Amino acid sequence: MNVDLFDFELPAERIALRPAAPRDSARLLLLDGDRTEDRGVRDLPALLRAGDLLVFNDTRVIPAQLEGRRGEANIGATLHKREGPRHWIAFIRNAKRLRTGETIDFGNGVTAIAEARHDDGSFTLFFPGDEPVELLLERAGRMPLPPYIAAKRQTDARDADDYQTMFANEPGAVAAPTAALHFTPELMAAFDAAGIGHTTLTLHVGAGTFLPVKADDTTDHKMHAEWGRIDAATADRLNTVRANGGRVIAVGTTSLRLIESASGEDGIVRPFDGDTAIFITPGYRFRGIDGLITNFHLPRSTLFMLVSALMGLDRMQAAYAHAIENDYRFYSYGDASLLLP
């Protein structure tokens, strides 16, 4: 499909630079079949049904943004996929000043060797030493806010909490599964009281999620792989919920993409442990999920293509026009939508 079909105009003031406070006070746009309603995140327990199951991503964002020097050159690195205990693939700023075999000094006793350059311009970095890389990042790294926020303000101490979900448990993401940022213990208690269950899976979100689609046609776009895991108990629970007439509601596109990666043509979710580079565009037949809670996405992005596949391109273009006209807040720290095809 032509990527221009997924374009829309978004006023800059619609991009949220801070999350709603409290988190569950964010607005919610409901798309239920042909119905469109302006609601709030706190309405979710009433908008879902007893027996439904919410699926959250329990990945934890690491301080994956690094600033360093190679000789006289300033080098920026955004880690986006772990390749081993001491190896990470990273997007490099000022990459033309970095050659294979050279060492970047990130300060605070943290260095990395550029071991290999890849076709997309990224590098494999090796972090020498005995300390776990996680400790090195805590010392030298900072929270990797999305570029559309980082371009407008500095990362600060608030982001260390604001950019983690209440489910964050498994370190490894370089971007938050932002739909889950709206959830609070009080909201989860309301789901429990309404008979709506929840479970978790793990998908370590990579910085590739923010890369623009540069191809003119979706068939020419290459997705970056991300590592995920669904254990046997979680897969069984997802299958049981649907067998009993409940709905599986993915919280965030990351949860959705992993469930779909683990689902067979028969709609059965199977245990999964490995990389996924699934790219969902209109025409895709969803197999493992029945609905999605997600934020509002960038124009021409793979995530706007995904929600258009779920609800229909015309439906989503109209919904986003409604959201813009009615002052919804967009992107990672913005408002939410509940999509029920």
Rank of each mutant, 00 (worst) to 15 (best):
Arg287Ala: 01
Leu30Asp: 10
Gly172Ile: 03
Ala64Ser: 13
Leu137Ala: 02
Phe191Pro: 04
His198Ser: 15
Thr178Tyr: 10
Asp266Glu: 13
Arg142Asn: 10
Thr209Ala: 06
Lys152Ala: 14
Leu54Gln: 00
Glu131Val: 09
Asp231Trp: 11
Ile324Asn: 07
Gly40Arg: 15
Ala175Gly: 08
Phe296Thr: 05
Arg142Tyr: 09
Asp236Ile: 01
Pro282Cys: 08
Met311Asp: 00
Phe91Ala: 03
Ile259Phe: 03
Asp161Pro: 00
Arg70Gln: 13
Pro171His: 11
Pro177Glu: 13
His118Lys: 12
Ala140Gln: 01
Pro271Gln: 12
Thr165Ala: 02
Glu102Leu: 06
Glu67Lys: 11
Arg315Ile: 09
Ala250Lys: 01
Arg242Tyr: 09
Glu67His: 14
Gly288Trp: 00
Leu48Arg: 07
Phe330Tyr: 10
Phe272Asn: 05
Val248Cys: 10
Ala160Tyr: 04
Ser263Phe: 01
Lys96Gln: 14
Phe330Gly: 01
Glu9Asn: 14
Glu226Lys: 06
Ala321Pro: 08
Leu187Ala: 02
Ala225Gly: 14
Leu258Lys: 05
Phe6Tyr: 15
Gly71Pro: 08
Ile249Arg: 02
Arg237Tyr: 02
Val110Cys: 00
Leu258Pro: 03
Ile92Lys: 01
Val3Gly: 04
Arg27Gln: 11
Gly228Glu: 11
His80Tyr: 13
Pro63Gly: 11
Arg285Asp: 12
Val61Trp: 07
Lys214Gln: 15
Pro85Val: 11
Ile280Tyr: 06
Val55Ile: 08
Pro128Asn: 03
Leu53Tyr: 01
Leu339Gln: 08
Leu187Thr: 07
Thr240Ser: 13
Glu226Ser: 04
Leu187Met: 10
Ile259Arg: 00
Pro177Met: 12
Ile92Asp: 03
Ser332Met: 04
Ile268Glu: 04
Lys222Thr: 15
Thr155Gly: 13
Ser263Asp: 12
Glu265Tyr: 05
Arg247Tyr: 07
Val248Thr: 08
Phe91Ile: 07
Arg39Asp: 05
Asp34Cys: 12
Asp162Trp: 14
Thr219Arg: 15
Tyr333Val: 02
Met311Cys: 15
Leu310Gln: 04
Pro282Val: 04
Arg97Phe: 12
Arg287Pro: 01
Asp120Gln: 10
Ile62Gln: 02
Gly197Leu: 05
Asp275Gln: 14
Gly76Ile: 02
Met311Gly: 08
Arg42Val: 09
Asp52Gly: 02
Val251Met: 01
Arg27Phe: 12
Arg49Asp: 14
Ala46Pro: 04
Ile278Val: 15
Asp4Glu: 15
Lys81Phe: 07
Ser337Pro: 11
His198Leu: 08
Asp24Tyr: 06
Gly334Pro: 08
Leu98Trp: 00
Asp161Ser: 14
Gln164Cys: 06
Asp34Trp: 03
Leu187Arg: 06
Leu187Gln: 04
Tyr328Trp: 10
Leu31Tyr: 00
Pro271His: 11
Gly51Asp: 00
Leu136Gly: 04
Asn326Pro: 05
Lys96Met: 08
Tyr163His: 09
Gly197Trp: 01
Ala77Glu: 04
Arg300Thr: 12
Ala140Lys: 03
